[in-house]
């Protein structure tokens, strides 16, 4: 069964159609990159899976968006419960003004978990998974805001991992980071794939090539081409995909 799937999805912001008849599926333990020019609908598409588009006024969605085979837009779905299953990492690191430990423990506490031993176990595991443990293990009580940008972003990933999500969404997670921090995030994505399914929006073509198994090219709300990353970057079928990945997009 596919981890994430979209069937005949259309999305409207009032009169404007932002997504046009999208069909898409992501297998478990895969990384899918969403690429395309600004305003093409890739972030809108990403936000379908944790229903963050619901927060936008006048949004209307048609079709089915499935997570583990269940339509996340059906009426009886509890959005809070859905967001526990779908972790999200944003462009700019957004740690809470709390300690490093509390940032990672936050989702667990909100979820009502009170077992200190379990919380500690999950925090350590998440920090190790996000390749941050060695750098912060001696200063867990220090403010997360004291960390560098790259460390803060990995902390946000650790925070997303702590709730053991089914799917991780990343919206340009390394665009605000220096090359070393970017490389760490990319290595992390590669490692996380063993346990998680990841969908990542990126404007960095080389990053899409390095981290993803499959790549989807969006243009003006349409999914133009979706194939293995190898195929998209060596011999795309559609001329618009070729023009975009080769930088000849006019």
């Amino acid at each position: 069964m596919n981890k994430a799937e979209a069937i005949d999805v259309n999305l409207y912001y009032k009169d404007f159609q932002a997504l046009k008849n999208i069909n898409f599926s992501a297998e478990p333990n895969s990384v899918t990159a969403l690429i395309g020019p600004s305003g093409c609908g890739k972030s809108t598409f990403l936000r379908l899976f944790n229903r963050m588009n619901d927060l936008i006024e006048g949004v209307r969605i048609e079709g089915q968006v499935l997570l583990d085979g269940e339509n996340v837009h059906q009426k009886n779905i509890q959005v809070d419960a859905l967001r526990k299953k779908v972790g999200m990492v944003f462009q700019k690191p957004n740690p809470f003004p709390k300690s490093i430990f509390e940032n990672v423990a936050y989702g667990l506490r909100v979820d009502g978990i009170k077992d200190k031993h379990l919380i500690e176990e999950r925090v350590i595991k998440s920090l190790k998974q996000s390749a941050l443990w060695d750098e912060v293990k001696d200063k867990l009580k220090k403010s997360a805001l004291e960390l560098s940008g790259g460390q803060q972003q990995r902390l946000c990933i650790a925070r997303a991992l702590a709730i053991e999500p089914s799917l991780i969404l990343m919206d340009e997670p390394a665009s605000a980071l220096d090359p070393i921090s970017t490389a760490k995030i990319e290595e992390l994505i590669y490692e996380l794939k063993k346990e998680y399914t990841i969908i990542i929006v990126t404007h960095n073509m080389q990053q899409a090539g390095r981290v993803s198994d499959n790549t989807a090219f969006f243009y003006m709300g349409e999914l133009i081409e979706y194939d293995t990353t190898k195929k998209i970057f060596t011999n795309p079928e559609n001329f618009r995909t070729q023009n975009y990945v080769t930088g000849r997009f006019g």
């Binding site: 073509m205 080389q206 090539g209 970057f233 060596t234 011999n235 795309p236 070729q242 990945v245 080769t246």
Partner: peptide, 9 residues
């Protein structure tokens, strides 16, 4: 330039 697709080929 990290060429891709037809440029890389």
């Amino acid at each position: 330039f990290n060429p891709v697709a037809i440029d890389l080929r």
